[in-house]
Design a protein around this nucleic acid. Structure first.
Lengths: 149, 149
DNA sequence: GCCAGACCTCAAGTTTAGTTGAGGAATGGT
DNA sequence: ACCATTCCTCAACTAAACTTGAGGTCTGGC
């Protein structure tokens, strides 16, 4: 049983394409070594790293945001369970916030879409009392940049 | 008080940029008329139409998906409350499904990130019992295309 | 009736997240 | 040694959702 994985093996294990993995390397999400012939050799822990990337992407995070999360993991050695758990705690907290926000959106939705207002100035969805909630972290295609007005 | 709005006025009311509104017209999300000089003139109901676009985008829907929803509204006349409510019902149902899915993801997350599995083959997040749930409708950057493997 | 500011079209550029293709080198089983 | 498969780099292409720029026209207040 090999200690290291070729890019093809990693692709098979994760379901990602080989080109996607190279792209992720370019963006700093994985840092494979090279063998004598110049080919990439990945640690087994990179399976998990890329799993995390895929999951976070499904949840709407960008590569840059995911990279920032992964940067919390130790650099030199393979991250252990404790490292992952620590990192996952922050991730889960953000996810909780996102879910709460979506529920909030949904609850406002009936009132807003169905209501008689024709102006966003009075729209509950665009002018919720707690504007702060919308300014927090999170993927921009989910939360969006608020229009400046 | 004017019955129709210029593109600039609409931009101010919605917080969108003028160019974004032109782009949305190109994609069929609004269908303004033109005045004698060839300039766009929008109905007041387009404020609401664009509000919907913005909200749906914040929730992760693509322009194409939003266009499909808006196509449910009547074409010739300005949509009334009942039209909007009918359309919003379907939208809300989808949103509920999305929230349920995210909660599901979150619940699986602790086990998956914190667990000892190094292979996606046994990962609860990638191989949930109810695969069907992931294949349903919804924005692809939230739900993602499942990798083929 | 002048003219700043708003509007018009069309083309090209931007970012994100990759894919596709060309041309070549390394790997590993026989 | 052979050679199919896998891997390498680099450049260019794709799609979505806009923005920016060039060059020109309309509108409306004085």
């Amino acid at each position: 049983m090999e200690r290291e994985l070729t890019i093809g093996a990693l692709a098979q294990r994760t379901g990602l394409s080989v080109t996607a993995i190279r792209f992720y390397e370019e963006r700093g999400l994985v840092r494979p070594g090279r063998n004598a012939g110049g080919q990439r050799r990945f640690a087994r822990s990179d399976i998990r790293r890329l799993s995390f990337v895929m999951i976070a992407q499904q949840l709407g995070y960008t590569i840059a945001e995911i990279g920032a999360r992964l940067a919390e993991l130790p650099e030199g050695r393979a991250p252990n369970l404790r490292d992952w758990e620590k990192m996952a705690r922050g991730f889960r907290a953000e996810l909780d916030a996102r879910i709460a926000l979506m529920q909030d959106f949904r609850d406002r939705l009936d009132g807003c879409i169905g209501c008689g207002c024709l102006s966003l100035e009075r729209c509950a969805l665009y002018n919720p009392d707690d504007e702060a909630g919308l300014k927090g972290a999170g993927p921009r295609y989910l939360m969006g940049e608020r229009p400046s007005g």
